[in-house]
Simulated assay, not measured.
Amino acid sequence: MLAYTVYSEAGGVGKTTLAANLAKAEVRAGRDVLVIDLDTQEASLSHLLDVADERNDSEADSLLRHMIDRPRGPVEDLIRTSEGIDIVPAHNILEYASKHLRRREEEAADFGETFNPNKQLLRVLREAGVHETYDTLIVDPPATADIKLHNAIHATRHVVIPFEPSGKGYESVQGLDQLVGGLEDNLDIKVGVLAVVPNRYKGMNDQDRFLETLQEDGWDIPVTLRERSSMLEGCWAEQCTAYRYVEEHRDRKRDHEVETLEKIDDLAEHIRLQTEVPA
């Protein structure tokens, strides 16, 4: 099973859009795909794919309930489907994930039990047989390095890093190198970086220099995604992937947008060829 987390500590770099479109590219390749949305922002993957109808429902079951052993039904009932992608949507209660998971850890300790708050997503997925049902698992966590990110990376062991090719973006990638190292030590796992993905590239000389420096540092940059503001803004307006937006909401196909979709397909294939590990 291929499993990875799409993460950047810098906001506004297209993390969620990339996660959704990589999931669609995997579906187009004939794979069964599950995406888990751990981001509590309203503009999350759940909103983009139009499956956020229970986000504010206090009576609804949620992934966090399963992670703290208080489910209201089977994991399968959490799943929604959009464009052939199975999705576990985000719920507002995820905002309090750290509090509830830490409390559950303290309760377990009181009874002489062990409860690792960073391993609960992995436990839930294993118990639900996700590794037997799906070919690809993609997790979209928040941009903050909190307990939700720790669970995402502990479950997937691999990351894909989108970034904007700028000085700030370069620093964010370098910071992620340190973050990954810290997570490896704290979680006692090895974390692989499957790809670094420059997004919103405009062909400027300064951007080229940053990309060259990253490649010299050993980062794998399989594709470069150019600035496509109109298409991506349209995706959010229509709540769909770029593939559906180009197919259903453009009166004519634009060569540069088709090229971008082809690059996302290429990126998905490149990631698949890097490694396949059990989640």
Rank of each mutant, 00 (worst) to 15 (best):
184 E>Y: 00
156 T>M: 06
162 P>W: 06
139 V>A: 00
137 L>V: 09
150 H>N: 15
163 F>R: 02
153 I>N: 04
141 P>T: 00
155 A>T: 10
168 K>H: 11
190 K>R: 14
137 L>R: 01
158 H>D: 14
157 R>Q: 08
164 E>T: 07
188 D>C: 05
185 D>N: 12
189 I>K: 02
161 I>K: 03
141 P>R: 00
167 G>V: 06
177 D>H: 06
197 V>R: 00
172 S>P: 12
176 L>P: 04
193 V>M: 15
143 A>L: 01
170 Y>S: 13
185 D>Q: 14
153 I>Q: 05
153 I>A: 03
194 L>M: 13
166 S>Y: 06
143 A>F: 00
180 V>E: 10
181 G>R: 10
137 L>M: 08
156 T>W: 01
195 A>Y: 01
198 P>L: 10
170 Y>C: 11
161 I>R: 05
181 G>F: 08
175 G>A: 13
165 P>H: 02
182 G>F: 11
168 K>P: 10
158 H>W: 07
144 T>E: 14
180 V>T: 11
139 V>T: 01
163 F>K: 03
190 K>W: 08
174 Q>S: 09
146 D>N: 14
141 P>L: 02
154 H>W: 07
195 A>L: 06
160 V>F: 13
152 A>V: 07
140 D>M: 10
195 A>M: 10
188 D>G: 08
185 D>M: 11
183 L>W: 04
147 I>T: 05
171 E>Q: 15
159 V>W: 02
169 G>I: 09
169 G>V: 08
141 P>Y: 01
142 P>L: 06
182 G>Y: 07
187 L>R: 01
157 R>A: 06
138 I>S: 05
142 P>T: 05
149 L>A: 02
161 I>W: 03
147 I>Y: 00
186 N>I: 13
189 I>T: 01
198 P>R: 02
157 R>T: 11
164 E>G: 05
140 D>I: 02
141 P>E: 03
173 V>E: 03
145 A>T: 09
192 G>P: 07
137 L>T: 00
165 P>A: 02
163 F>V: 03
169 G>P: 07
177 D>W: 07
153 I>R: 02
196 V>G: 03
163 F>I: 09
176 L>C: 08
140 D>H: 00
191 V>D: 12
175 G>K: 14
164 E>D: 14
148 K>T: 10
162 P>I: 03
171 E>G: 02
170 Y>A: 14
158 H>L: 11
143 A>E: 05
165 P>Y: 03
140 D>F: 10
144 T>G: 11
140 D>C: 02
164 E>L: 13
143 A>T: 10
138 I>E: 08
190 K>P: 07
151 N>I: 14
194 L>G: 03
173 V>K: 01
172 S>T: 15
176 L>A: 08
188 D>R: 10
161 I>M: 13
166 S>L: 12
149 L>H: 01
194 L>C: 09
191 V>A: 12
177 D>I: 13
198 P>S: 08
143 A>W: 00
185 D>T: 12
